[in-house]
Amino acid sequence: MSVASLAAVEVDYPGRGKALGPFDLSVEEGEIVALVGPSGCGKSTALRLLAGLEQPTRGTVTRTPGRGETSVVFQSPNLMPWASAQANAALPLELDGVAKTEARRQAADALARVGLSGAAAAKPAQLSGGMAMRVSLARALVTQPRLLLLDEPFAALDEITRRDLAADIHTLWTETRPAVIFVTHNVEEAVYMASRVVVMSASPGRTFSVVRTDPALPRPPHFRTTLEFRSAAETISRDLALSMGCAA
């Protein structure tokens, strides 16, 4: 069953013209889809449509209606600098009217799930980039979303941290199996994270190609060294190069 979808959506920005589309995307329950494409092709715009933060100029958006059923993790952690990790993670519940003690308890659970139970009282400035991103992830998970939108969540992290986080996201995903849409610049990351990779063309973004990878999620150990991984990555890299060419 589809959790959310975009059907022939187009987005025009005043003074800029068309930024996205026509673009179709549908994500099934429990599926992880990666979105790759040249910078500025409309990946973030597509996520904003799915999150309900923006309306399409044309086309239809179908999304899960409930509060907290869709969560977003942005490129930067976007934490409130004055609030502790726990208070940050509790925010979605508190905004929804959940009593403070209950919200804080659930936030502590979410922090424990992302491996940060020791840092509940820490303020964002006291956390490393990777830890701050984990708090952001805990905040997204605290509402137990059916759809998790990740907009280049690792872009600002170093290689080791991003690999750790990628593996941990898979582990977390097995617990509740939300549908995930994962935006990235990084081809190998897309192949590792998602069972379906959508390559977008240069702005205004459309679907250029779709690449599927087989082994079940979470990935087997050493997946990154398999032939399957390499060949998927090469196909996507080639498509990405072609997709940039076709706009020029």
Partner: peptide, 12 residues
Amino acid sequence: DPDLERLFDLYG
């Protein structure tokens, strides 16, 4: 922070 504003939008 406009990003935090968006987050507050998201969670209604």
